[in-house]
Design a binder for these strands. Structure first.
Lengths: 359, 359
DNA sequence: GTTGGCACTCGGTAGACTCGAGTGCTGAGG
DNA sequence: CCTCAGCACTCGAGTCTACCGAGTGCCAAC
């Protein structure tokens, strides 16, 4: 109680800690990350480089606790870091973090070997990231809102049923069923396809131009219906593809089964996951710890995020979701490397043709 | 020990139990499903319709235990059903099981409202099934191996890069990137598209005919590459689409966190899930309990499966995965209804055009 | 075959106790 | 003023004991 009364601003110098306090905090964070046990003063005294006695460490620890970097689970236990403590660690203490040689090899061999469409790549990337870190991983694919339409085709499936297929410049394929109010033969479909193709090519799927009639009733109807279907598909596709890898690893990360339950159920809501990552990135962060992101069920989780950028434009993200006591340097390194490699990979598929597109 | 020595065939009449034993077993199964607590003789005596004393129930219970329907977690606890006990319950005791009016309404309103492509429908169906039952749900989509190709198109994305898009008669769209060793212009693409279309239409994607050359070098090369890519895509697509709904619900179903972990990690392996459902269906079962399916990590799970059939041909499945002490009647009813509705839904999209296809 | 009576078993809970890790404080020494 | 050894203290975790009660198996009587 007594300690709570003091405002933490008393002994802070703008959020920075002196070297020894920082070293102590670092020892506590790394110790707690490693053992999941509260860290005591004697352990800190022996683990940190500074040669001081446990008693001195203790007096520093009360200061760190007063300033909100540490808490004691109960009197006479060691300290564990608060979210603020982790934050300081991530911002000022964590060494840049490199992948181990084995992990680096795993990443590079993955990206040289992976094949298949965009979806497959994203999906297996999420598994890769989860394998690398032993935490759950999230990969959000690029939104197709901005990609211009490259080709449109209306395929007949039944006399009164068709499928509109649009290929976007980023290689994505959108498709949607259409129901015709009358029988449509192949000639009409071909004509409609040609007309649509001419009109719509180059526009983005979220802002399609209206298709001018060519005064052939059947064809015009088909074109109208197909355009409507495409618009519809475009609306749906602004919800980006989300892939979650290794959620089962979260089961081992927490001991309270209710926590696991809550976190998993968040991960099932793809929209929430997307906006979580987006929020974090928009705030210019690469890590969000505990309460920093606004999702209460994830209060005991930390998220490490890295953007996926194609042609300098952000178009997706990779993320790692683990307990707040996660291995931040490793996770940040993994997210950064995988995010970059994935950017290159997607860029290789799209980048060049974008230049041609407008050339 | 003593009881183990007897072969259970001693007092069985072909696996059937007399009416009273059956009633007792039923009371124990339903009791255990409801409370997760071992069920004692007095509870059975009061819960079952038969008017007998707990002592009589007890003597019946030792017989049931000797025959392998029940076990005692420890001396002087109540009994809980074995897998065999659940099996008998499912086969002979469970009343057919109807959905509650509210659930039935939920299902029908879902199927009238759901829209979007096949994938979206399957995905949200898995959520529906999970919501209905409070267990995890699995939906396996139809394989496209048998669907004939309806349309093929080669779209250029970059001078040396293209996308082969094939529309199958069941409305599925397969696509794959192709890399050309030389620049390809639109005329070549159009010619290749036309030639491919003529050759490949009507064949199944898993057994494409070879494309005869037309003696235009560039076009032939493009055709060959595109056909290869399609074959590749066909190989990949025999792994059907799998959607898992509500895995987080499993966290509440078991108390051992290790069990949760194991089950979740099985659910992440889509291939395993598919073959699990397939195995169960192939053995003509709708329920697999505990050790009946061969997957040890799922030993404490039961699976309820219902087929998805289009035109009388099985083309997918829905499943419910819960603890062995799950509510079988409800789960079976839910799986059955959802499976049937999903069949109709998919059939409505495909059935008619199949007739036209070969007509 | 059924049943009430009865001794018995054993898991679960609660209390008492110990152990030890870790603390906060104090006073001496730099 | 900082450091640190010494020390009393706190409190969680583990162990042991006793006890309760649900539930059993057995048996003698109906």
């Amino acid at each position: 109680m007594r300690t709570e009364d003091h405002d933490s601003s008393l002994s802070r110098s703008g959020g920075d800690l002196d070297a020894r306090k920082a070293a102590i905090l670092e020892a506590i964070v790394t110790g707690y990350i490693g053992t999941a046990q509260p860290v005591g003063s004697s352990h800190v005294a022996s683990a940190t480089g500074i040669q001081v006695s446990p008693a001195t460490v203790r007096s520093e620890m009360v200061a760190l606790e007063r300033d909100g970097y540490l808490i004691q689970p109960h009197t006479s236990a060691g300290r564990i870091p608060t979210d603020k403590g982790y934050r300081f660690f991530v911002d000022h203490l964590a060494s840049p973090g490199r992948l181990g040689p084995q992990q680096a090899k795993q990443v590079s061999s993955f990206f040289t070997q992976v094949q298949g469409g965009l979806e497959e790549v994203l999906e297996s990337t999420s598994s890769l990231l989860s394998d690398l870190t032993s935490y759950a991983a999230v990969v959000v694919g690029p939104s197709h809102e901005q990609a211009p339409v490259r080709s449109v085709q209306v395929v007949g499936l039944a006399p009164r049923r068709g499928l509109v297929v649009a290929v976007l410049a980023d290689g994505a394929v959108e498709n949607r069923h259409v129901e015709f109010p009358f029988d449509v033969d192949d000639d009409v479909l071909a004509q409609a396809t040609a007309h649509l193709q001419a009109t719509v090519s180059g526009a983005t799927i979220s802002a399609l131009p209206t298709v001018p009639p060519i005064n052939v009733p059947a064809t015009d109807d088909v074109c109208r219906l197909a355009a409507e279907a495409l618009t519809e598909a475009g609306k749906l596709s602004d919800h980006e593809a989300v892939f979650v890898g290794g959620p089962s690893r979260l089961a081992s990360a927490f001991d309270a089964i209710e926590t696991v339950r809550g976190v998993l159920s968040i991960l099932e809501q793809q929209l929430v996951v997307v906006s979580l990552l987006r929020d974090v990135l928009e705030r210019g962060l690469s890590v969000a710890i505990g309460s920093e992101h606004g999702y209460e069920p994830l209060a005991s989780c930390a998220v490490v995020v890295a953007p996926v950028e194609v042609n300098g434009r952000q178009s997706g993200a990779v993320g790692i979701l683990g307990p707040t006591r996660m291995n931040y340097p490793e996770a940040m390194a993994a997210a950064e490397v995988v995010g970059r490699q994935l950017s290159e990979r997607i860029g290789a598929e799209q980048g060049n043709q974008e230049l041609n597109e407008h050339g």
